Amino acid sequence: MRVGVVGAGAVGGYFGALLSRAGHPVTLLARGAHLEAIRREGLRVRPVQAGGGEWVAWPEATEQASGTGPQDLILFAVKSYDTEGAARAMAPWVGPSTTILCLQNGVENEGKLAALYGMGRVVPAVAYIGAERVAPGVIEHRARGELVVGEPEGGSSPRLEQLRQVLAEARIPVQVAEDIWAAKWEKMLFNVALNAASALTGATGARLVAAPRSRWLFEASVREALAVARAQGVPLDDGVVDRVVAAAAALPAVSSMYHDLVRGKPLELESFNGYVVREGERLGIPVPVNATLYGLMEARQASGRGS
């Protein structure tokens, strides 16, 4: 299977490297020092688990999608704020039978991809992985590494079964969800509650839910986002709040938004709390906690880097 990776950072790079190591012809879209390092030394994956040794994959790497032809599968893993630009740039890779596996956080990116290429080509997915690109051509794998995939309209399909088999043969644990939007929204609830609060305070997920007042804030932001999801028709059960809190309690790390803020990088704020605020206003659902987090993060981002 010909595989293209758009967004060859920690997530796209890790899964692309596994598919390359399994023998699939993989091409990464990359640029700058990252591109040169991959061409020169391969894409190195450095596990941090005890006993895990560094390994190297040798995918092709290019700065432009033109010239390589349509791909059978595209792993789309850019940050949400780069969706439209990256989606247009990958046009030469999209053929009549191309599947676009959307590995992004948030719940609106699939619609943006569908606007360009049709929802029939898009497979929504949820990636559960702890990884970071720590140097050009080097990905540090810290935890997990599984995918949940599903058809936009629900149920299974021949292409989903083929995709599941290809991923599983590359040693990527994969689960097929009957309702992928419920799975996408469950992770969205976690991101909404964790990212801005962690970026503002420097607290880990575990610390945020350990203290009574910050736990109240965390749970309140989850419940507001849950109300928005249900108003959209997403069937999330009442136990989702406890599951999200438990996931935070098991996280001894700060959010990715905290790291992006400190490094002066763009933030996925609009796709998390910003989305909840906009949809809350559209649907007539009060979301004061998310509006507060959103407003404070707007001001914090405008004031410069964190510390």
Score class of each variant (00 low, 15 high):
Tyr81Met: 07
Glu146Trp: 14
Lys112Phe: 01
Glu132Pro: 11
Lys79Glu: 01
Gly130Val: 02
Ala115Asp: 11
Gly120Ile: 05
Ala89Pro: 05
Pro96His: 04
Pro136Asp: 03
Gln64Lys: 11
Gly67Asn: 00
Ala143Met: 14
Ala127Val: 13
Gly111Pro: 10
Ser80Ile: 02
Ala125Ser: 01
Val94Met: 01
Ala77Trp: 07
Asn109Ser: 13
Gly137Tyr: 08
Val138Trp: 10
Gly51Ile: 10
Gly51Thr: 08
Ala61Trp: 14
Ala57Thr: 11
His141Lys: 10
Arg142Ser: 15
Trp58Gly: 03
Leu101Phe: 13
Ala50Ser: 14
Tyr117Asn: 12
Gly145Met: 13
Lys112Tyr: 06
Arg88Val: 09
Thr98Trp: 00
Thr98Asn: 06
Met119Tyr: 10
Val134Ile: 14
Gln71Ile: 00
Glu146His: 15
Ala131Pro: 03
Val134Arg: 09
Cys102Lys: 02
Trp55Glu: 08
Phe76Glu: 00
Met90Tyr: 00
Lys79Gly: 00
Ile100Val: 12
Gly106Leu: 07
Gly85Thr: 07
Pro96Thr: 03
Arg121His: 14
Gly53Met: 12
Ala91His: 12
Trp55Gly: 07
Ala125Gln: 01
Leu103Ile: 05
Arg133Gln: 11
Val78Gly: 06
Pro124Gln: 04
Gly118Glu: 05
Ala143Tyr: 15
Ala143Val: 13
Val126His: 02
Lys112Asn: 04
Gly67Phe: 00
Ala87Ser: 15
Arg88Gly: 08
Gln104Trp: 06
Ala114Glu: 04
Gly120Leu: 03
Arg88Phe: 10
Tyr117Glu: 12
Ala115Val: 07
Leu147Lys: 05
Leu73Glu: 05
Val134Pro: 05
Val134Trp: 06
Ile74Cys: 09
Ser97Pro: 02
Pro96Asp: 09
Asn105Gly: 04
Ile129Leu: 14
Val126Ser: 04
His141Gln: 12
Gln64Thr: 12
Gly69Gln: 02
Leu103Asp: 00
Phe76Ser: 02
Glu63His: 08
Gly145Ile: 09
Pro59Ile: 01
Gly51Val: 09
Thr98Ala: 04
Gly95His: 00
Glu146Ser: 15
